[in-house]
Simulated scan of single mutants.
Amino acid sequence: MANSSTPAWGELLIGQLAFYWDAHLHPRLDGLTDEEYFWEPVPGCLTVRPDADGNYRADPGPRTGPQPVTTIAWRMMHIAVGCFVTRSSTFFGAGSVGDDADMFDPRHVPADLPHTAAEGVAFLEDSYRAWHGHVSTLGDAALQLPLGPKGAYFSDEPMAALIVHVNRETMHHGGEIGLLRDLFAATGAVRRTDRLAASAS
């Protein structure tokens, strides 16, 4: 007999990310060292580094053309800030950023990012827990509502589409973090400046 019950789509969407976090990404961050966190396996990596005032910021990537290799620090902050913090602030914020701010407004980005691997892991976990807590409260009607002006050029897309996008981004970049950790260990790297291979002369 066919199952005629209607799937709880919201629970499936939110549960997908929760399972990935609990079973895959979070365990892969255990024991992360500062040298791994900031490891630049090739020259010219995008990373998280201090600015002139000592505040740590993520390097901006080029808008077009080949994308540089990125560090674990950059990937973790891309997930934490680009996926979780900015979306939580935009759609569930407590008014600390003006109502005129869409989800790409730089005012959502913290002025100073974590300086160490341990701080980075804690920040990523906190940002994930906040996002998960927010979206877990949404019913079917809220999931179907358009993002509106806060969604910028995705204003006509429903909240469910944003959740799917965040899930995809987290799993994509989380897999890269795992690979970078594997490469760090497999190549015998011990310092953040150790390279995968010597540059061609």
Rank of each mutant, 00 (worst) to 15 (best):
V97I: 12
A130G: 00
D102I: 06
P106M: 12
S136I: 00
R129S: 03
E119M: 11
D112L: 01
F123H: 02
D126N: 13
A94P: 00
H132R: 13
D102P: 04
H132Y: 03
G93F: 08
A118C: 10
D140K: 13
G98N: 06
A122R: 12
A142S: 15
L143H: 13
D105A: 09
V97L: 03
H134W: 11
D112C: 09
F123T: 05
H115I: 07
E125T: 07
L124W: 11
P114H: 10
H108A: 06
D112G: 05
A117N: 03
R107C: 05
L113T: 01
D100L: 10
A111R: 14
M103A: 00
P114K: 06
E125M: 06
L138V: 06
A118W: 00
D100K: 08
A118E: 14
D102H: 09
P106C: 09
F123C: 05
H134F: 12
V109M: 07
H132P: 00
F123V: 02
D140G: 15
V97K: 03
G95T: 02
H132M: 03
D100A: 14
D102W: 01
A117M: 02
M103F: 10
V109Q: 09
D100R: 07
G93D: 00
D102N: 15
W131M: 13
F123M: 03
F104Y: 13
L124T: 07
A130S: 13
H134N: 12
H132N: 05
G139Q: 12
D140C: 12
S136Q: 14
D100N: 14
L113C: 08
S96L: 05
A142Y: 05
G98E: 11
V135E: 14
L113H: 06
V135P: 14
Y128R: 09
R107Q: 03
G98S: 15
F104L: 11
S136K: 07
R129D: 02
L113I: 01
D140Q: 15
S127H: 10
M103K: 08
V109R: 13
D99W: 01
A142V: 11
S96D: 14
S127M: 08
L138E: 12
T116C: 12
G133N: 02
A118P: 03
Y128S: 06
W131T: 04
P106S: 10
D105Y: 01
L113A: 09
R107M: 01
A111W: 04
D100W: 08
L113G: 08
A130V: 15
V121D: 01
F92H: 06
G139W: 09
D102F: 02
A101S: 10
A141C: 08
D112A: 15
A101Y: 03
S136T: 05
H115G: 02
R129W: 04
H134E: 07
D140R: 12
P114E: 08
L113M: 12
